[in-house]
Computed example of a mutant assay.
Amino acid sequence: METELSYHPIREDEKQAICEWVYDGEYSIYNLPSYEEMKEKNMGFANPQKEKNFYTYFDNNTLVGFTNILEKETEVFIGIGVNPDCCSKGYGQKILEIASQICAQKYPGKPLYLEVRTWNERAVRCYRKAGFVIDGDVIEQETYIGHSTFYRMIKKNI
C-alpha cells in the first residue's frame, strides 16, 4: 500500500515537537536546541522572517518530517529533517518528492540543491532515490555545531 503524505506550512506546535526529536549515536548532531533557545537566537523555523519557508509532512496524524525551501537567485535550496522514529522507512524520499512538486509550482525551472554531510550514507542514499546527484567536490564548512564536510547534491526542477 502506497502511503500518501499530507503537508502544510509549519505551525507553532509542530516547531516545539520537532525540537523534542532525539537522534541517537552519530546522528545526535541533528538534535536541535530547545524551541525557546531557537526563538532567542532566531534560528531556522523559529525566525519569523524564515518560517514561511518551512513545511511539515504527515502520515495520517504522525509528524514524519519537515523541509526548508529557500529560493536563491538561480536555484532553490532544500533542507530536510525526518522524525527519528521514521528514519529508514522511505519518508525522506516521499518528503523530497513533495518538496520537488512544491518547487516546480513556485519556482519553475530552477534547479534544486541540498547539502549533506559526507559520512551520512543513509541520507545520501535517500537523496539519490529522490533524484538528486552529487555535484562537484566535497565542501568544507563551519556550521553552528562545528566544522564538517558536505556533498552538494542537485536535481533538475520541472
Rank of each mutant, 00 (worst) to 15 (best):
Glu36Pro: 01
Ile69Met: 11
Lys50Leu: 12
Glu12Cys: 08
Pro84Ala: 06
Asn60Leu: 14
His147Leu: 09
Leu5Arg: 05
Gln16Ser: 01
Leu63Ala: 02
His147Trp: 11
Tyr27Val: 00
Tyr151Val: 03
Lys89Pro: 05
Thr67Pro: 05
Leu63Glu: 02
Pro9Ile: 03
Ala99Glu: 02
Val133Phe: 15
Gly92Trp: 14
Leu96Thr: 02
Thr143Met: 13
Phe150Ile: 02
Ala123Ser: 15
Glu51Ile: 11
Asp135His: 12
Ile18Ser: 07
Ser34Ile: 05
Lys39Thr: 00
Cys86Ile: 03
His147Pro: 01
Leu63Pro: 00
Cys103Val: 07
Phe132Gln: 09
Met43Asn: 07
Ile69Glu: 03
Glu75Ile: 00
Ile98Pro: 10
Gly44Cys: 05
Gly79Ile: 06
His8Trp: 04
Glu142Lys: 13
Asn120Trp: 10
Leu70Cys: 09
Tyr107Gln: 03
Val22Ile: 15
Ser28Ala: 15
Glu12Asp: 13
Ile158Asp: 11
Asn120Gly: 05
Ile98Phe: 11
Leu96Asn: 06
Asn47Leu: 14
Ala17Pro: 01
Tyr144Phe: 13
Tyr27Arg: 14
Arg117Trp: 04
Ser28Lys: 15
Ala104Asp: 01
Ala130Val: 08
Arg117Val: 00
Pro33Gln: 13
Ile18Thr: 05
Ala104Tyr: 05
Gln93Trp: 07
Lys129Gln: 13
Tyr7Trp: 14
Arg11Phe: 07
Gly65Arg: 04
Lys129Arg: 15
Ile29Ala: 06
Val138Asp: 03
Cys86His: 10
Glu36Ser: 05
Val22Asp: 08
Tyr151Glu: 05
Asn120Leu: 08
Trp119Glu: 04
Tyr23Glu: 05
Glu36Gly: 02
Cys103Gln: 11
Asp85Arg: 15
Tyr30Glu: 03
Asn157Gly: 04
Cys86Thr: 00
Ile69Ala: 08
Glu140Arg: 12
Leu112Asn: 08
Leu32Ser: 05
Gly109Phe: 09
Tyr30Gln: 02
Trp21His: 04
Gly65Ala: 01
Phe58Met: 03
Ser100Lys: 11
Thr74Trp: 15
Glu51Trp: 12
Val124Thr: 09
Leu63Val: 00
Tyr144Pro: 09
Tyr107Val: 01
Asn60Gln: 14
Arg11Trp: 10
Thr3Asp: 09
Gln16Cys: 01
Glu115Val: 02
Gly81Ile: 00
Phe150Ser: 07
Glu2Trp: 06
Met153Glu: 11
Phe77Gln: 12
Tyr107Thr: 00
Glu115Cys: 10
Asn61Gln: 07
Phe150Leu: 11
Ile154Gly: 05
Glu142Gln: 12
Val133Thr: 14
Ile102Ser: 08
Val133Glu: 14
Glu4Ile: 03
Tyr57Gln: 01
Tyr107Ala: 01
Asn53Leu: 08
Val64Glu: 03
Arg117Tyr: 06
Tyr144Leu: 12
Pro84Gln: 08
Arg11Asn: 05
Asp24Val: 05
Glu4Gly: 00
Gln16Phe: 09
Val22Gly: 03
Leu5Trp: 07
Ala17Tyr: 03
Pro48Gln: 08
Val124Glu: 04
